[in-house]
Design a protein around this nucleic acid. Sequence first.
DNA 1: CTTCTATATAACTATTCTCTTATATAAGAA
DNA 2: TTCTTATATAAGAGAATAGTTATATAGAAG
Lengths: 107, 107
Amino acid sequence: MNSIIKMEKQLKAVSDINRLKILACLKQGEVCVCDFVDVLQVSQPAVSQQLRKLKEAGIILERKKGTWKHYRLNEEQTTYIQAVLDELEPISYQHCGPDCSSEVGVD
Amino acid sequence: MNSIIKMEKQLKAVSDINRLKILACLKQGEVCVCDFVDVLQVSQPAVSQQLRKLKEAGIILERKKGTWKHYRLNEEQTTYIQAVLDELEPISYQHCGPDCSSEVGVD
DNA sequence: CTTCTATATAACTATTCTCTTATATAAGAA
DNA sequence: TTCTTATATAAGAGAATAGTTATATAGAAG
């Protein structure tokens, strides 16, 4: 009943090529906003808006670190979103800078 | 590479409440177009257009039977679309008429 | 043939989406 | 404080979406 509404929201969240790429990056671990700008080749506000959609759908989580914000995959996913994540090929990326880097990325 | 494009297309196809309801109906078996009009409470052309999207994404198949057209789930699904189907609660519906009924539906 | 009936397509409209640029916010550095 | 940096929000433009009504197509029936 309500769950079909939630499904629609979550599926909408992952039915965009740029958001799929964001998720593909996040398979490697935490990523900060600035890194996505390079990967997606869109403006920083565009990235922020995409991240918000994924966050509101409960698919990703954020962590503040000074001025930076790091995003990561939610460990708890619905089975169908997890299936999408499993299907995605990870995307490697360059860190925007040494200050930004926290955990993982391209070595 | 190309597969992320296919993912986007398939996910877009299932990220609409009415198309999710169509799939929920199809879990019971073949359904003809006229039945969906009742279930979804939209016009017949609207149903046709939704069905076309699902068909073009390879999620459903059609079978002609006289003037009627019966739609059913494709037996071969990508894992993530199958996960969506598994999560959907089946929706029961009334047959539009005796001529239309072929296999299943509400008894 | 003509006339129904089931479905598809065309054309149009309103809404939603996703980008852009400009601006706001928040935190660190000088 | 002021300046810079990273991110978020606001506002607007253009494209895509999903509905509508009108019309076309195709098969069944008379």
